[in-house]
């Protein structure tokens, strides 16, 4: 075929352009660290990266949620631990007061201590965490336990102003756990109402009702302790589960990060090699162009 100067020049120009375009593309990839800089670079990969990134964000949030649940449960456990100690003390006091060797005056003294313990239990029930009343169910804005007193200032009972609502925290796709306990279930369970028990014990102490103290009250304190232990066991179980879930979330996010990186990150060693390769191609195209554009009969004519 007859080839003219223009064909040669246009080819040289096109080759230089194409080589330069590829060179710039490699440079862009290296500079951004991403092999996908726009959708058309890899449509399926780009959509996959968008999906993985969103999954990753979801996992991060699940981890945060699990942390929140864990912190909350620890706070509940702390309160229940305190109530447990109070109950142990109460049990000691009731045990001592039930003995015949204790004088009525001493029983009055014990009654004073029981009243103090009672206040502590009420305070524990109205404990706040993050500005919310922990045992109020969903009605977190107000103290859940209100002490009713008669005209003499004697405690007649405790009313629950919360509801039995429990929060729901998502710690995995569709996995929801509750990070809260309802106050009525902990403090006012059937047969294990800590307030009623303490009010009765205080009265029995004042009235020197040794029989009730030894026959009923010890049993009622034990029932309360059992109930609290039951809830603490539940918290412990949830804590274990959270630990497992957090481990799994961690390993999931590591593997998804790996996938994401494989999808959209470049292999630096390879990218640098490709860049050098493309640089050589570009220089070769330039040098070929400079040679072919010069050549011509004109150079050889005098």
């Amino acid at each position: 075929m007859r080839v003219t100067n223009n064909v040669m020049m246009e080819r040289a120009m096109r080759n230089v352009n194409v080589a330069f375009e590829r060179y710039v593309k490699r440079q862009e990839q290296l500079a951004s660290g991403c092999s996908i800089n726009r959708l058309s670079d890899d449509p399926h990969g780009a959509a996959k990266a968008v999906r993985l990134r969103s999954t990753l964000k979801g996992l991060e949030q699940y981890k945060t949620n699990a942390d929140i649940a864990d912190t909350k449960l620890r706070a509940y456990d702390g309160v229940l631990d305190k109530v447990g100690s109070i109950m142990n003390r109460l049990r000691d006091l009731v045990g001592r007061a039930a003995s015949d060797t204790v004088t009525p005056t001493e029983r009055d003294g014990i009654a004073v201590e029981v009243r103090e313990l009672f206040e502590e239990v009420v305070n524990a029930g109205n404990e706040m965490h993050n500005g919310e009343h922990m045992f109020a169910g969903h009605k977190v804005g107000q103290a859940p336990f209100k002490v009713e007193r008669d005209a003499d200032g004697r405690v007649t009972g405790v009313l629950y102003h919360g509801d039995s609502g429990k929060d729901a925290i998502e710690i995995g796709p569709g996995i929801v756990i509750s990070g809260s306990l309802a106050g009525d279930e902990v403090f006012m369970a059937d047969g294990a109402n800590v307030f009623d028990a303490m009010i009765d014990i205080e009265r029995h102490l004042r009235e020197n009702d040794v029989e009730s103290l030894s026959e009923e009250d010890l049993g009622r304190v034990d029932a309360v302790v059992d109930n609290i232990l039951k809830h603490r066991a539940e918290i412990g179980g949830k804590g274990k589960r959270l630990e497992l879930v957090m481990d799994r979330l961690e390993s999931d996010s590591i593997s998804i990060e790996g996938l994401l990186s494989k999808t959209e990150d470049i292999d630096f060693a390879e990218a640098i090699m490709r860049l050098c390769e493309q640089e050589i191609v570009y220089y070769a195209a330039l040098s070929a162009a400079s040679k072919s554009v010069q050549a011509g009969l004109l150079q050889f004519l005098r």
Partner: peptide
């Protein structure tokens, strides 16, 4: 070009 183009040579 092979038909219509000008070749300087």
């Amino acid at each position: 070009e092979s038909v219509s183009g000008v070749s300087l040579d």
